[in-house]
């Protein structure tokens, strides 16, 4: 590198550098099944603008996505599909449960609805609300970014 003058470089760890890069380039896969989708769209569109957080690029194939947004009621009929979509995503991957129905089944306490998607796939962030306000969604997104930043890399050398 030759001469590096004082003050012209910063030190960091590779781990936190990767976390920083990942948290600002979230490619999301919206798995939208119900009315929460409206609020999701409001968050994604220009007024609230999810792109300010580096999460503006939605991918419509799970193979290109980092974050799975499960937005809406998941029925038992649909459960195998959601599981397959999750399995198709490449590591590293995160899951956001969006709305009360997704978290607990909500008012649909019956034969049809899954009582929380964490019965099917692991979940990183829960967004409560029926439906959640866009502010809540953005808050959850920032919490997810925090989580991604702090994540320990699996390949890192450890004692």
């Amino acid at each position: 590198m030759g001469k590096i003058r004082e003050g012209n470089f910063v030190t960091t760890t590779l781990e936190s550098l990767i976390g920083w890069a990942r948290k600002y380039s979230i490619f999301q896969y919206p798995f939208v099944t119900a009315c929460c989708g409206m609020e999701y769209m409001a968050t994604a569109a220009s007024h609230f603008d999810i792109d300010r957080f580096g999460a503006g690029l939605t991918r419509f194939t799970p193979r290109q996505a980092d974050v799975l947004f499960v937005v809406g009621t998941i029925s038992h009929k649909l459960a195998p599909v959601l599981k397959k979509v999750y399995e198709q995503m490449t590591e590293p991957k995160w899951v956001v449960a969006f709305g009360t129905c997704t978290i607990t089944g909500g008012i649909y306490d019956n034969y049809a609805a899954v009582q929380g998607i964490d019965a099917i796939i692991p979940v990183d962030i829960y967004i409560p609300g029926c439906p959640p306000r866009p502010e809540t969604v953005l808050d959850a997104l920032m919490k997810l970014q925090e989580k991604i930043q702090k994540e320990k890399q699996k390949w890192a050398l450890r004692k």
Binding site: K77, N110, A112, V114, P122
Partner: peptide, 18 residues
């Protein structure tokens, strides 16, 4: 006579529903 909250999952669940 169908139990009100009886579900029939198609895949193995990670936890019990209720």
């Amino acid at each position: 006579d169908y139990p009100l909250k009886k579900s029939q999952p198609r895949i193995k669940l990670l936890r019990s529903e209720r």
